[in-house]
Design a protein around this nucleic acid. Structure first.
Lengths: 211, 211
DNA sequence: GTCTATACAACGATAGAC
DNA sequence: GTCTATCGTTGTATAGAC
């Protein structure tokens, strides 16, 4: 049976497209109150689908949530890459900060879902943190140690360097409500965006004494 | 009728003490999933009280939540003080970072409730952000501008300086699950605590080029 | 594959005995 | 002031017609 591609109606979407629509809508809803604070009908409304339809494509609310988390982790890891000891240290950190800031501005809801999950104690992605993320950080840490031994970076715990970079880059997504309130603007515009990147990059590179 | 002070049983607590117990328990519960993700019976269990008892002391779940938020904001504002242009810039920022880090380690749940509230779009404390917090930041910003004109601080947007300081100090409370996972420890110990303060202070002061 | 109707469990809040 | 019982509502999930 031939499947038609998307037209004006949501009903015309293929299975794959509909699953993607549900996940996109779910990410937006979960970004406000997390798993326990979100309702299936909110996701359904957001997607423009009847509630029961969601449970045809996914087993349960938790199943949707797990799929959203998987999707976010893939984007995260995929976009961040690996830093090598041969890289130019300053350029490498600069690129890393840029990537993280871009993610914060392009997918703020993904960042918020991640934040809510961590604050809740990482019941779903705890394993990822302890295995994949930890070993990724451990690998980068050994690179930082090489740079530090060459005097190309101040000698502080590489782990804490990452905690700080993650914190300042993600704050522009997660705490954007606070930021717009303090700046007295309705939303973070293109100007604030590039000014934020410059400021963060400048302060961190200087703070790490990178030449 | 004479009231007895607290003994072993929760029942012996005075009205004031019992309200405080409820708020303390509620803060812990709200710190995991926010307002909508938390259940009254969870707060009741945490406090060791029957559910209906909570609704004798407070009108509703939202009422408890608002009281928790008020409590947190008072602590926040009270602990942070004001910085004056006459202060020694480096010492002032150092003290500010120290205060914020102390708050993160002494009241991590308060920090988490605050974070969840902001991520949710600040439905309850939005007013505080736009008025009290904004004017506080605006006052500090004029102090920073004086320092910057004297060459005692790098010339970047004072607002973004605060965004960065808040982000790195609060990350040790809010994202402590991620931090312990990456460090491979069960909890952030006294050693990590002071190492975190030193690292954060060092990087930020250097990053702001404070002499 | 879609959607209505509904079963069933969870939850907030109240009534009323003590 | 405390606590049990319970009401009314909301929310997840399923059954079954189309």
């Amino acid at each position: 049976m031939a499947k038609r591609v998307a037209r004006s109606s949501v009903k015309r979407l293929s299975t794959v497209e509909k699953k993607a629509l549900i996940l996109k809508s779910a990410e937006k809803v979960f970004a406000r109150q997390g798993l326990k604070g979100s309702r299936l009908f909110e996701i359904a409304n957001e997607a423009g689908l009847p509630k029961a339809n969601l449970l045809y494509y996914f087993e349960s609310k938790e199943d949707i949530y797990r799929a959203v988390c998987r999707d976010i982790l893939e984007t995260w890891l995929g976009a961040l890459g690996e830093i090598s000891a041969d890289d130019n240290p300053k350029k490498a950190i600069e690129n890393y900060i840029k990537s993280k800031m871009d993610l914060s501005f392009s997918r703020p809801n993904a960042s918020k879902v991640f934040a809510l999950e961590i604050i809740a104690g990482a019941p779903v992605i705890g394993d990822y943190l302890e295995k994949d993320l930890k070993s990724w950080v451990d690998r980068q840490a050994s690179v930082f140690k090489v740079w530090q031994s060459r005097g190309e970076m101040v000698s502080i715990s590489p782990q804490h360097v990452f905690f700080m970079i993650w914190a300042v880059t993600q704050t522009y997504a997660d705490f954007n409500t606070q930021i717009t309130a303090v700046l007295g603007v309705k939303e973070i515009g293109a100007v604030d965006y590039s000014s934020a990147i410059d400021t963060v990059t400048e302060v961190i590179l200087t703070g790490l004494r990178m030449k």
